[in-house]
Simulated assay, not measured.
Amino acid sequence: MSQFEFTSRSLADTDRLGQQIATVAQPGDVLALVGTLGAGKTRLVQAIATALGNSPEAVTSPTFVLVNEYTAGRLAVFHFDVYRLKDDDEFLELGAEEYFDRDGITLIEWGDRVEHLLPEWASVVTIELTDADERQVVVMGDLAARL
């Protein structure tokens, strides 16, 4: 399995990573974003969606609505936040499997909670706080091979 590592020392670094991911993103990509609260999952989604051509103001965390769609860019972005889901059925009831087959990129915050429900081609993006201003990002899977 391919692996890509990146160290972010600023919001600008995270934005650059998001631009890099957006550049190689393909329809059908599924990314499980994993990390503690405040690690930068939503910021990375904002960077990816913005780099794909969406307004930065339009990209917000779907913590309470569970899924947001951003369709103004080169690829549609389907942004899930599964932190508050009680079980697998809730995730499936959102129509997650249908999103995987749509012509866009699916980004799932707290993706480790539903990783066993994701397609085999899904990539995992782990963001770990290593310092107050530093994050270590590890991408595993198909996306890593393109970065």
Rank of each mutant, 00 (worst) to 15 (best):
P56W: 06
E57H: 06
E57F: 03
A58P: 12
A58H: 14
A58W: 05
A58N: 14
V59R: 02
V59S: 02
V59G: 04
T60V: 11
T60Y: 01
T60N: 06
S61G: 09
S61V: 08
P62H: 02
P62V: 05
P62F: 01
T63C: 04
T63W: 01
T63P: 01
F64W: 04
F64T: 05
V65H: 01
V65T: 14
V65F: 05
V65D: 06
L66R: 03
V67P: 03
V67D: 00
V67A: 03
V67W: 06
N68Q: 10
N68R: 05
N68K: 03
N68W: 00
E69K: 11
Y70R: 03
Y70T: 10
Y70P: 07
Y70V: 10
Y70A: 01
T71V: 13
T71P: 07
T71K: 13
T71G: 14
A72Q: 15
G73R: 08
R74L: 11
R74W: 00
L75D: 08
L75S: 09
L75H: 10
A76V: 14
A76E: 09
V77P: 09
F78K: 00
H79T: 04
H79E: 01
F80M: 07
F80V: 01
F80T: 03
F80C: 02
D81H: 12
D81S: 11
D81G: 12
V82E: 10
Y83W: 12
Y83E: 11
Y83L: 11
Y83N: 12
Y83R: 12
Y83V: 12
R84P: 04
R84Q: 04
R84F: 05
L85T: 11
K86F: 13
K86L: 15
K86Q: 15
K86S: 15
K86C: 14
D87I: 11
D87S: 13
D87T: 03
D88H: 12
E90L: 13
E90Y: 09
E90A: 10
E90M: 13
E90H: 10
F91R: 09
L92I: 14
L92Q: 12
L92T: 14
E93S: 14
E93P: 03
E93R: 12
E93F: 15
L94H: 02
L94F: 07
L94Q: 02
G95C: 05
G95R: 03
G95F: 10
A96M: 04
A96S: 13
A96Q: 08
A96E: 08
E97V: 10
E97I: 05
E97W: 01
E97M: 05
E98G: 08
Y99N: 00
Y99G: 00
D101L: 15
D101C: 13
D101T: 13
D101I: 08
D101F: 13
R102P: 03
R102N: 06
D103L: 13
D103Y: 07
G104M: 06
G104L: 06
G104W: 10
T106Q: 07
L107H: 06
L107A: 05
L107F: 02
L107S: 07
I108R: 08
W110R: 00
W110Q: 01
W110K: 01
G111F: 06
G111C: 09
D112R: 04
D112M: 11
D112K: 10
R113A: 04
R113T: 05
R113K: 13
R113S: 07
R113E: 09
R113F: 01
V114G: 03
